[in-house]
Design a protein around this nucleic acid. Structure first.
Lengths: 338, 338
DNA sequence: TATCTTCGCTCTATCGTTTTAGCTAACATT
DNA sequence: AATGTTAGCTAAAACGATAGAGCGAAGATA
């Protein structure tokens, strides 16, 4: 059973396709279509189960009412939650989402973005990978509306919705110092991601400000690809008598979850054997016996703001859009892990 | 900068649009386009950064190369992981995904499905909610290719990719009995979802087969909407002297995670105070100090199979497709929680 | 009665592709 | 020299919607 189209309805009622189109789009009044015919059309359309063909409509109007979402990995709960928030907000505004996972790989990201552009998405929400600056610049040239989330490029003027990574890390590190920890380690990604670097910088700044030594042995990084193998070794080293860390700051949820898993397996007591703090507050942490001190991101707000900002851009059309930068505040949740 | 189109390339090279189209789709040889012109077209297209307009192409060919995914909630890690698997498999076959979350709400599910159909998706992967049987039947009438995952309707002949819910629950319950537990509770959803019912049935059958009483006080259910409030009360009751459960079987990952969270808060020792088993093996469980006995679903396989089956349907076109039913095996992971 | 408005609708072009059919020039065949 | 083939391309019609211009009849105005 083929989809019913405007012309099918028109034929049934012996009216023009245009009339049907106008009525169904609610433009009957302003085009002085009689109420009688209007009602008939509406009725018939419902009866026949008419669903507008969005490809045809999109081709004609140039709007797809689709938003493309590029994240590192949709199965990462952080991005999953953001996706969900975006979805809700988009749906309420008549949009739907397509998504793609970049795996922090710039080539993949590029393919995804260009594919979305080819599909004439009306806009993009992107959590950009490292080394994807050119892609974003190209997008700007192409005048495709987009908003960056979670990450950003500090030498690129783009609309971003991010959190105050530096300050948050600074605060949690400061707290650790105040609690008396003196060998505070940090484990981050060595991936060239600005927002991760910011987190590390915040950590370092706090150490400096409170006259702590910055020991390279304590500042460690894993690569996203080898995290599973890397992390085990790093944590062992940090806990060795040689390095002797008394606290670890995990710079992301993934690192945190995997890190805690490892500590669990090593039967380490927290905070007795080692204190823990983490960026992000994934649901998993609630299952850990000790409540984890963490920096909770306002995920709902990120999604909401990002979509609102994107819609603003989309609706402004060709007018110049001053690009707003949203730096949202995180929440420091102090648990028993420190 | 408007997107470059076929006619732009054609104009530049003084050839017809048809020729450009043929060349770019690799149909040059069979249409005996000269190598010389072919190369020129390819070069020019690259130079101008041509990206086919998928809406136009889709309108003409009737194929969108989009697959619609309807799940209960994309931010549920179970569905997030499935989504990811589907994405990979889809991408390798030239497809991309749109998604929508139904929140177990049939109206929302209906809106989503019809919206996807209106977008001319080439197929749908659906984790159907309760009371959505009519929607699925309608889909069948509309001859839209689709595959159901995770859930199914036992009186509807559809292509499904599910796990052996009954057997898995039976096995884990049997194991609990064999370990000596005599007051085994089960907490499930009261949502009319067949697969959840199957899990409960498996649990009951094991109790029967091993001559255990089936105590209604031990068979509890929460509603998806009120899970947070419901669960706390139910667990308290189960642990009361009155009911005196010695083991709890959580029927889903959501219930399990929230349940463990509550037990953590109540400072219950597992398995000393209460033994625990669960359907699903979310990553969170790894952070729980006691390894959880659980039924692990082959998520990768579900995604892969579902997409392959869908592609089969899509490619068969109008031919009759015998609908295969895939019932995948789960893995019983025995932990220290029992 | 002739002209002007308004009403209620229709005609036609268009969006960027793909697809079918066909056209022209060059060459081969008899 | 007339005819048939083939190579190499092009023209035109879709796909299903939207948008702008237009058109005939009825009522209003002079």
């Amino acid at each position: 059973m083929a989809q019913v189209k405007l012309s099918d309805i028109a034929k049934e009622l012996n009216v023009s396709v245009t009339l049907v189109s106008l009525v169904l789009r609610g433009k009957a009044k302003e085009n002085r279509i009689s109420d009688k015919i209007s009602k008939e059309v509406l009725k018939k359309a419902k009866e026949m189960g008419y669903q507008p063909n969005q490809m045809a409509r999109g081709l004609r109007t140039g709007k797809s009412h689709i938003i493309g979402l590029v994240v590192a990995d949709i199965s990462n709960p952080f991005f999953g939650k953001i996706a969900r928030q975006l979805e809700n907000e988009a749906w309420d505004n008549g949009y739907q989402l397509m998504f793609g996972s970049s795996d922090e790989n710039p080539e993949k990201s590029q393919r995804l973005i260009q594919s979305f552009v080819g599909r004439s998405v009306d806009g993009l929400i992107i959590a950009p990978t490292a080394d994807s600056k050119e892609q974003i610049e190209r997008l700007q040239q192409q005048k495709v509306p987009f908003v960056l989330i979670d990450r950003y490029f500090n030498d690129l003027k783009t609309p971003n919705v991010v959190v105050d990574n530096f300050d948050s890390s600074y605060e949690v590190t400061k707290l650790l110092i105040q609690k008396g920890y003196r060998r505070i380690a940090a484990i981050s990604y060595s991936s060239g991601l600005q927002h991760i670097d910011d987190r590390v910088e915040g950590y370092k700044k706090a150490l400096e400000d409170y006259s702590q030594d910055i020991d390279p042995q304590l500042m460690r990084a894993v690569t996203p690809e080898n995290i599973d193998t890397d992390l085990q070794g790093i944590i062992s080293e940090l806990l060795s008598d040689d390095v002797n860390a008394d606290a670890i700051f995990f710079a992301t949820n993934i690192i945190g979850i995997k890190g805690l898993k490892i500590l669990n397996k090593m039967n380490k007591k927290i905070p007795e054997d080692i204190a823990i703090a983490s960026f992000d507050n994934p649901e998993s942490y609630a299952l850990f016996p000790t409540s984890i001190t963490c920096i909770e991101q306002p995920i709902e707000e990120i999604g909401k703001k990002a979509l609102q900002e994107l819609l603003k851009q989309i609706n402004k059309g060709k007018e110049k859009t001053e690009t707003k930068d949203y730096v949202l505040k995180t929440k420091l949740l102090v648990g028993n892990s420190i």
